[in-house]
Design a protein around this nucleic acid. Structure first.
Lengths: 209, 209
DNA sequence: GTCTATAGGGCGATAGAC
DNA sequence: GTCTATCGCCCTATAGAC
């Protein structure tokens, strides 16, 4: 009883593996979507065997649901931090909307997080994933209304531009920008002001598809 | 030479079948996405055999690309008609943005059209589909800027709310609305003013998944 | 032109060794 | 706890009859 039970060390390791797999799954799900992702691709990205991934989470669907829940928790926590943080952001626009918007854009750095959510938003017809996705979206809506104090119109503006940003990321529109397309340049500079640099950084890392 | 060649009658029929399959494919792709859709599901929806679908379009990918192209052509034509149409719409808001926005919402009646496009917008990592999706999105952007005369900011607003609407449809958020969720009610009434009735009509038809 | 039958490959999940 | 091996299913695409 004086020493830790022997399982502790291994369980620690197991938890780390779990986090590693969840991170890999978030990335791959974000890139290829729920159906387009194979448990083998996740396993390779995490450096483990495919059956191990399935064993640890039961099913591919359960794994995706956990990725969604983590992404949502992270998103809500980020917004709450932005609401609570009294530090003003750089630049002339220091509204709460802008602060939360910038914190949203920073989530781009977590590879696949916003895209995994976005993919779930198109799976509303799926009885399990669709229900989770709707509940998740509504919880974000509620936070903005009730905790950030946004009006219905402000919330709509905020969410619409969030969906636009997710779409730009999903489209890999930054590739056109990098190729010098002037149209893509206008589009991205207007759709993601002050966030474009962040996007381009993320894209460079994600190049090896 | 006085009579039509005998192929004509059958070719007519073949074209009708082709349109039938394209309509079915648009619906199913919109509902389940590119990867989640089986050629067999499309075939059943169109009342033909699965190999016939593949034979007619070569591959599932080629079929999806044709669905995308048709959807895009339809979208661009709809916008051009709204720009050219001098008839004012009902209600106090008779800006060009509102007219085009309403014409966009009417595309909801074509089952799966906007959702098939939206699904392609998340497949930017796919070398073939991603390239087509980016080009398609940019062609819409160009039309709004050059033909509708929108500023960069107006275009951003328009597109952002379009993506928001697509997301609401993909999420089946109207189901929550129908279940009486007050949060979903606020959300939808603000995100899709004057278009909600249109959405609810579409959803009712799409109930059998 | 449209079908039935089926090949061929890939995927999620299970069994079982270590 | 993690692996290798493998089952069984499903899906795209092809072959070939009518």
């Amino acid at each position: 009883m004086t020493i830790q039970p022997p399982e502790t060390a291994t369980r620690m390791r197991s938890d780390e593996r779990r986090e590693l797999i969840l991170a890999a799954a978030t990335s791959v799900f974000g890139e290829r979507g729920y159906v387009g992702t194979t448990t083998d691709a996740i396993a390779r990205a995490a450096g483990v065997s495919q059956p191990y991934v399935v064993r640890m989470f039961g099913t591919k669907e359960a794994l995706f649901l956990e990725v969604l829940q983590r992404a949502l928790d992270r998103l809500l926590a980020t917004f709450r931090a932005a609401i609570a943080d009294p530090t003003p952001v750089a630049g002339p626009d220091d509204t709460l909307g802008h602060r939360i918007g910038m914190s949203y854009a920073e989530l781009l750095l977590d590879r696949g997080l916003l895209l995994s959510l976005m993919h779930s938003f198109l799976l509303g017809a799926d009885p399990v994933i669709g229900a989770a996705a709707r509940a998740g979206f509504l919880s974000v809506y509620r936070l903005l209304r009730e905790e950030a104090g946004f009006s219905a119109e402000e919330t709509d503006q905020f969410l619409a531009h969030g969906m636009m940003m997710n779409t730009m990321v999903g489209l890999r529109m930054a590739d056109e920008y990098a190729d010098g397309d002037p149209c893509a340049k206008d589009l991205l500079e207007t759709a993601m002001p002050q966030k474009l640099e962040l996007l381009l950084r993320t894209t460079a890392e994600n190049t090896p598809a």
